[in-house]
Design a protein around this nucleic acid. Structure first.
Lengths: 215, 215
DNA sequence: ACATACTTGCTATCCAGCAAGCAAGCCAAC
DNA sequence: GTTGGCTTGCTTGCTGGATAGCAAGTATGT
């Protein structure tokens, strides 16, 4: 009984709610412009609870970032396994990967915004960066191996990967600003899909160009 | 005499110094994390002078953004005129435009960072956006006309333009974060030039792809 | 003399972090 | 099986530091 009246104690739920609220607010307004009181309010706990669980505001931020990077790395890992499992052509693999990545980011705009803010501030909360680096390295290894491209630093594989990332991130951040200013609608899912098709097509033509140059 | 002892009065110089300092600090640390006192310090005036000239912090920010967008629009305009003046092939025009744009952004990282922050915060200082829109529209018109691409909203010209912008912006913001994480060095001017070549090549292959599809 | 450029003192506000308090679950002893 | 004490989740009051904006002052050029 009393399965859950209202005033239960539920630390895991509270912790998660605080992380969710903080992620949303940090992504939306930035670190400085977000107060712990706001986080508490949005998480449905009191002013002081975020501080109680995470100690300091910077620790909360760090925890949000950690969760974010872990999710990204897991997604990369999962994507690669999916690509390796079936037997696909080289081009189909790349096409699927770009499509998956595009969709992944669109579904998690907060992650992109958080990392974007981190980059803009030069990683003020300078963590060691292990998960981020590892996600990038895994993706690089995958793309070089699957597509047979130059895997050396700043080689073809890395350059192509960076281009894919650039193209997939941009719509998330600038859907409401730059995109409409240059006449691209990204408001509806249909319009987003159109954009995705364009990105995929650009990357595929680029890949063919790389193969042509290699030969 | 007394051409400029030390304590001259020089409102234009002060105003410009304050704008420069504010642009740098807003770009580096963001709006909230920048205090008017810091701006004054960096501009070589007192704590209160930024407030004296611009009234409110938000007005100063607005002034910084206005100057920034005007510069961008002027650059687009200049680039188009340069392209139209000589007689170049279609591909050479695009190649030159991408190269110029890439260099322009690399030389003005503050502008990119400011607009990026603005986009992340959803344009909290919601101005009418006239200069920004006009810069985008001018670029769109230029690319559609010079390359003979579909000029309708979300058409080929707009999509290609957005891709170019995505590819040129990314290195500015993520040179120290994402790029090294995926194995691309953007630290030296040589490495940046390599990146630029890759971007140009990707765009050119993409353009050829668009022509092929059209036919 | 007067206006304008600029500075300094002040105040109200906000917020992070701390410390004290309250209440809910848990467990042991009786 | 209930009573009392302990731990832990969570809230609230408080304090010191930062800062935006204003108001009053000082200096400089005309």
């Amino acid at each position: 009984m009393a399965a859950s009246r209202e005033r239960e104690r539920h630390p895991e739920r509270s912790r998660a709610a605080i992380l969710d609220a903080a992620e949303q607010l940090f992504a939306e307004h930035g670190y400085e412009a977000t107060s712990l009181a706001e986080v508490g309010l949005r998480a449905g706990v009191s002013r002081g609870t975020p501080g109680y669980f995470f100690g300091a505001k910077s620790e909360l931020y760090r925890a949000v970032l950690d969760r974010c990077f872990e999710d990204v790395r897991d997604a990369v890992r999962g994507g690669r396994e999916r690509a390796q499992s079936g037997s696909h052509t080289t081009e189909a693999i790349l096409q699927g990967a770009v499509s998956d990545y595009f969709d992944f980011l669109s579904a998690r705009p907060n992650f992109v915004r958080l990392i974007e803010r981190e980059a803009l501030s030069g990683g003020a909360v300078q963590r060691d960066g292990a998960p981020r680096l590892s996600a990038g390295q895994e993706a690089l290894g995958a793309i070089a191996a699957e597509l047979g491209l130059d895997p050396t630093p700043s080689g073809d594989a890395a350059q192509l990967l960076l281009s894919i990332i650039s193209l997939c991130w941009f719509p998330v951040v600038h859907a409401a600003t730059v995109a409409p200013a240059v006449g691209v609608d990204l408001g509806s899912s249909g319009a987003l899909a159109l954009r995705k098709q364009h990105v995929i097509s650009l990357v595929m033509h680029g890949l063919r160009g790389l193969y042509a140059e290699q030969r």
